[in-house]
Amino acid sequence: MKDIKAAVVEQKEGKFNMKSLKLKDLQPNEVLVEIKGAGICHTDLTARDQSYDVPLPMILGHEGSGVVKEVGSQVKKVQKGDHVVLTYGSCGTCRTCLEGTPQYCEKFFDLNFGGERLDSDEEAIDQSKEEVHSRFFQQSSFATFSIATERNVVKVTKDAPIEMLGPLGCGIQTGSGAVINSLKPTAGSTIAVFGAGSVGLSAIMAAKICGCQTIIAVDINADRLKLAKELGATHTVNSDQKENVVEKIKELTAQGVDYAAETSGIPAVLAQAVSALRWKGKVAVVGAPPMGETAPIDVNEVLVWGKQIIGVVEGDSIPDVFIPRLIEYYQNGQFPFDKLVTKFDFEDINHAIEQMEAGNTIKPILTF
């Protein structure tokens, strides 16, 4: 067993408590990673607050990065000493995985929110021999060490700052991939991004990479809109003001935008995004509201205008291909995601979350 220190949530809406735990031994397809950095994502807070039904107590964290310390007997992708980013889990054997879309794995929810190995209920244990769920997104990276599977570790170059790379495994690949992989905007096209958090700002940087001529950022936070301009937005709309967001976008683009990305997870904002599209426009639904939420969308507006609404999970990313590409963009100066980041010591996780929830930081990264 491996001794670790982990931040554990034990009850709904509870604090993250530091605990000394033991990880059970590796299975043949698994990888032991010493965590160097872990991003905090809104999905971690969704799980903490039980908006998604996840078992507690659990070690959360699903944007980990670090160094491989040990590999199982069947692992061939990585070896001891490799730098890796941890990403979402997938089974590799269901129809959607075999079709090359593992982000829509038929076992996605069980693997990423169930908190257990795919074929075993073995967990980490605390000093009183009580079990703690330790496979959130098949990694549980709010810990000094993490066990992942060969499928959800991504080998990355050693000349990039490993403690910074974890968010590429979820939030940042989600926003950028929604544009690059899902919407695939043509050069010279127009796009509106609703929400200027880490996912939305990543989408804006991706839109610039794709050559979009008009990039409109929509948010209620003036500071984040200012940062959006620095990262590539050509226009901003403050939706907290009295102006009509849809009318303003159509004023800037004549008939509306070719593409939109909705990252806020607010159903009414999705309705705005649909209305802001031009004829044959396409919107990517990225933000996740609580289960059961519906959006007030005019069906005939979608039908008559030929608009498309697509759901996007994890940026439609094949992580082993897409994450190294994002690192190349970053190293070339095209994708400065470090401007979204504030670093916190691992022990300060609760303070980091407070700063995130207060809107004082966009993407907190815990460093070890």
Results as ranks from 00 to 15, higher is better:
residue 286 V to L: 01
residue 88 Y to W: 09
residue 28 P to K: 11
residue 344 F to D: 02
residue 298 D to Y: 08
residue 318 I to M: 12
residue 291 M to T: 15
residue 337 F to K: 08
residue 108 F to H: 11
residue 92 G to Q: 03
residue 238 N to Q: 04
residue 250 K to H: 08
residue 90 S to N: 15
residue 13 E to A: 14
residue 119 D to F: 12
residue 351 H to T: 15
residue 17 N to I: 14
residue 264 S to E: 09
residue 174 T to S: 11
residue 256 G to L: 05
residue 96 T to P: 11
residue 144 T to C: 00
residue 333 G to S: 07
residue 365 I to T: 09
residue 223 D to W: 03
residue 247 E to V: 10
residue 290 P to R: 11
residue 86 L to Y: 01
residue 28 P to N: 06
residue 44 D to I: 07
residue 150 E to Y: 01
residue 280 K to E: 15
residue 220 I to P: 01
residue 208 K to H: 07
residue 219 D to A: 05
residue 18 M to V: 11
residue 279 W to M: 15
residue 58 M to I: 03
residue 211 G to L: 10
residue 19 K to R: 11
residue 346 F to R: 01
residue 301 E to W: 06
residue 190 T to Y: 09
residue 194 F to H: 10
residue 260 A to V: 06
residue 168 L to V: 10
residue 121 D to I: 02
residue 11 Q to Y: 10
residue 111 L to Q: 01
residue 270 L to M: 08
residue 99 E to T: 12
residue 98 L to E: 13
residue 24 K to R: 13
residue 151 R to T: 13
residue 208 K to E: 14
residue 128 S to E: 13
residue 150 E to W: 02
residue 294 T to R: 13
residue 67 V to F: 00
residue 237 V to Q: 05
residue 62 H to C: 02
residue 314 E to T: 07
residue 156 V to S: 03
residue 155 K to Y: 04
residue 243 E to H: 12
residue 178 A to I: 03
residue 64 G to Y: 06
residue 192 A to E: 04
residue 5 K to D: 05
residue 181 N to L: 03
residue 343 K to S: 12
residue 125 I to F: 00
residue 116 E to C: 12
residue 354 E to Q: 15
residue 136 F to V: 01
residue 39 G to L: 08
residue 181 N to T: 03
residue 368 F to T: 02
residue 350 N to T: 08
residue 104 Y to W: 12
residue 55 P to N: 07
residue 326 L to G: 08
residue 59 I to P: 00
residue 179 V to F: 05
residue 1 M to N: 03
residue 122 E to V: 10
residue 310 I to P: 01
residue 316 D to Y: 11
residue 135 R to T: 05
residue 219 D to N: 07
residue 82 D to Y: 08
residue 71 V to A: 04
residue 229 K to P: 05
residue 330 Y to P: 08
residue 155 K to R: 12
residue 135 R to S: 15
residue 336 P to S: 10
residue 283 V to S: 07
residue 70 E to R: 05
residue 359 G to M: 06
residue 169 G to R: 03
residue 301 E to Y: 10
residue 23 L to H: 00
residue 120 S to Q: 01
residue 340 L to I: 03
residue 351 H to G: 09
residue 249 I to K: 03
residue 89 G to M: 02
residue 363 K to Q: 13
residue 303 L to F: 13
residue 92 G to R: 04
residue 288 A to T: 15
residue 95 R to C: 09
